[in-house]
Structures are given as structure tokens and as C-alpha cells.
Amino acid sequence: MQIGPYVRLDGVTGTAMDDAAGPGGLTVGAAAAHVNVTIRTLHHWDAIGLVRPSGRTSGGYRLYSAADIARIHRVLIYRELGLSLDDIGELLDAPAVDMTGPLRQQRAQLLDRISRLQAMVDAVDRMIEAASSGILLSAEEQVAIFGQRWEPSRIAGARDRWGDTAQWAQYAERAAGRTPEDWRRIADGIARLEDDLAAAKRAGVRPGSAEADALAERHRASIGAYFDCTLSMHVCLGRKQAADPGFTAYYDAIEPGLTVWLRDIIDANARARGIDPDAATWT
């Protein structure tokens, strides 16, 4: 006995009745399982006239014939091609239409989509390689671009030390999209900055002066080519470099005492902008 559109006193729902086997075709549940769509989808396609079942059980439940299943498969193919349900309905209900034109158009769109997806795959591959190697340049290319004093092993050392940080992830993302020409422009900018820092140190430019602050900001911007660098992070980097024998040797080879002077102008610039260098943290 049925007391509503779905619930019967024997506890069987309408959907369960739809799933029951019946003569003359597949029930909606069996058809949905056969073509791997939901029952709701088939109900909707029936409601809009896209795929109407050819038969009904004695109880009024849908039955899908072999031709109905074939039509469902055609709908799925066209959906995969990107056609709307309205367009699919027009194609299916107009058997005399020349399918060549629409299909060629869809093929061109698919090829374009494949091309864009392949470009995305290539970009992801570059990011994976950049995250692993640190830079998409050979050791020879690195030396040719960054100069004879450059040591390619620095990249591996930085990866081992910082590879699990957000800054390394940001660096790898940016590195993945850079060409040798991009790196050459960055290297040229750093070389000009180092020359200007050395000249200012030799000229006796004092930390805290407008000229020194401008140089400190240029130095922070050069780090920004790799990852976003706040004033507080800049202070931490300046002090870490000043305490590192390798960095000290690098900068002092450009100009004696340059490492400590650079640390001092970074501290003074941060202090002028509201950051206490002695309380700076990596944030």
C-alpha cells in the first residue's frame, strides 16, 4: 500500500522500485549503473526530453531499451566534447544534420585544451625540477651568468637548509618560469648593486643616511627577486650573513668590511621604518 509519492507501507522507496528488474529493458537504477551516471541524471534527462525511456513497467517505472542506452552513450560522448545539453538534444533529434562541421569544431577545441593542459603539465614539471635542484641552469650556465666567483654548490646548500620553508617554495615557483636571460638580468642588477654598495662604503656613507637607506632598500628588493622579504626578515638575513664566514669572504672580497657595513645599513633602515633590529624575527 502506498501512502505518498515515494514511501510505501512495506518500506520500499520509489528509487528502490526503480532499481527492481523488469522485462523489456533496464530499470533506471540498472541503466545508471551500466553507463556510470547517477539516477538523478537520468531522471533529469528524461524530464527535459533528452533521453526518455522507451518503456515502463506495469507499475509505471522507467525501462531503458538497448536504443535508449545507445542514446545515453552518445549524450556522454557529446558532453565529453563540451557540448551543452541543448546542443546535444538538437544533434540527436536531427539525424539528417551534417555532423562533420560541429565535430571538427569540437576537435579543434579539444586539441586546444590538450595544448593548454600540456603547457600546465610542463609548468608543473619545471616547478618540481626547480624545487628539487633550486635553479634550472647547469653549473656551467650558472658560472657564466653569475661570474667566476659563483659556487653552484650554494644552491644545493640552500635547498638542504631551507627546502621545507615557504620562502624556498616561493623561490622555486619563480625560478621555474625564468629563462637564462631572466637570470642574466637579475645577475646584472645584483652586480650593479654590489658595485654601488662598495662605492658607498669607500665614500664613507653612514648607516641611517638617506643614501644608505636607499641602498638597503635596493638590497631588500634584490632578495625580493627570489622571495618576498619583509624588513624584519631583511634584518635577520643581514645579521646571518655577517656571521657567516662564506658570505663575509664574498662581500669583503668586493670591498673590505662591506659585510658588516651592509648589516649596519640594513639595521638602520629597518629602525627608521619602525622595526627594532634587536627584536627582529623571520616574519
Rank of each mutant, 00 (worst) to 15 (best):
D244Y: 00
D278M: 02
I275N: 01
D18N: 15
A21T: 08
Q118P: 07
Q148P: 02
L231K: 06
A199E: 11
R263W: 01
Y6I: 14
V121Q: 14
L136I: 13
I48S: 04
D267W: 03
T15M: 13
G82F: 12
R161D: 00
D244K: 00
A225V: 09
L117G: 03
R185K: 12
L76D: 00
I223Y: 15
G189F: 01
R126D: 13
L26S: 02
Q109D: 14
A187N: 03
W261Y: 06
L76Q: 06
M127W: 03
G82A: 14
D46K: 05
D10C: 13
I128Y: 08
D264W: 02
A200W: 05
A268H: 01
R56Q: 12
A216R: 11
Y64N: 09
G134K: 04
T281G: 14
W45R: 05
L197R: 05
D10L: 10
E211M: 07
P277R: 03
D182K: 06
L83A: 14
W45P: 00
D267R: 07
I145T: 10
W183K: 01
T13Y: 10
D196H: 04
A279P: 10
G4F: 03
P207C: 01
I88L: 13
V124I: 12
R161H: 03
D188C: 02
E217L: 07
R107W: 12
R154Q: 10
E140G: 04
E181M: 05
A139R: 14
A280P: 01
E217N: 06
L85E: 08
L117P: 09
G29F: 10
P277S: 11
G238F: 02
R154G: 07
G274K: 14
A67W: 02
A123K: 11
T57K: 05
T15E: 11
A70W: 01
I39E: 10
G22H: 02
M99F: 05
C236W: 00
R218C: 05
Q2I: 13
V37Q: 12
D86C: 03
T15S: 12
N36I: 11
F146Y: 13
L111M: 08
W183H: 15
W282A: 11
A212I: 10
A156N: 02
R8Y: 01
R184S: 10
R178L: 13
A214P: 13
L92G: 06
D160C: 08
R273N: 15
A166G: 14
R40G: 13
L237D: 00
L258P: 14
A200C: 08
R178E: 06
T27Y: 05
A33V: 09
G11C: 06
A270Q: 11
I72R: 05
A280L: 04
S115K: 07
I145Y: 07
P5H: 08
A270M: 08
W150F: 15
G189P: 07
L92C: 03
R220L: 05
D252Q: 00
I223D: 00
C229M: 14
E255P: 15
P152H: 01
R56M: 04
W261F: 08
Y64L: 11
I135E: 12
L103R: 06
E173C: 09
V143P: 04
Y6C: 09
Y226K: 07
S54R: 13
V121G: 07
S65A: 13
I265L: 15
D264Q: 07
